[in-house]
Design a protein around this nucleic acid. Structure first.
Lengths: 109, 109
DNA sequence: TTTTTATATCTTGCATTACAAGGTATATAA
DNA sequence: TTATATACCTTGTAATGCAAGATATAAAAA
């Protein structure tokens, strides 16, 4: 049956937007931040394709900057469209949350 | 970007288990019940394959019974394994819930 | 100098799963 | 006998998390 992997579908992108909104951040750092929030460790094969997708959709803008200890970092920031998408995500998530919790609470009785 | 469709992945099956636990129910009825809980209407192309999958995994047991107004109904009930899976789903859902809400709350400040 | 290590990003291919579309069958009512 | 509501199933598609592997840079160790 479904594991955490499946549960993340359609949720991870919203979380990325939320974290990027806190301030410019680059991919490698983002992966670490997600873990610090309680997500199980993230593969780069998950993060980078997602970031590229969001860049294509113009939800995020990017800037390359030199690193002190490796190749250039690609910093992400939210666009106006990204902010709007984040708001929509909030709504979808809250709705889902409410509905699922209703189903689960009912079943406990 | 992801819509409700993607968000449901790995969540819908747990919700089905939760509803079936409330009492024996057949597929067609289940679809209606989900709507009553606040989910947007469900295609039968979503429900039936999922139920068959859960049957194969022995999470649910089935009984055919005559209907008063149509072909036979296939009633589903939880197996012992299904109950355990439901518990695991609860844990996964609560964990996800906590983590995502933490990310979203932070971003609001 | 050469090698190793940590940092940093990207690509390819796979598995899972919600869903649309279409098909079949039964019972009642018009 | 036709229409309608009920009830279930199958096939194919799209979306997306992730494993595995490739590439590149900079600092430290050998």
């Amino acid at each position: 049956m479904a594991d955490q992997t499946q549960m993340l579908k359609g949720i991870l992108d919203g979380c990325l937007l939320a974290i990027i909104k806190e301030g410019e951040i680059y991919g490698y750092e983002l992966a670490a931040k997600l873990e610090s929030y309680g997500f199980t460790s993230f593969s780069e094969g998950t993060i980078y394709p997602l970031l590229l997708r969001m860049q294509k959709e113009k939800l995020v803008a990017t800037t390359l900057r030199k690193s002190t200890a490796g190749p250039k970092r690609k910093y992400y920031s939210l666009t106006e469209k990204g902010e709007q998408e984040l708001l929509l995500f909030h709504q979808r998530w809250n709705q889902l949350n409410k509905t699922v919790n209703k189903v689960l609470k009912k079943e406990e009785m």
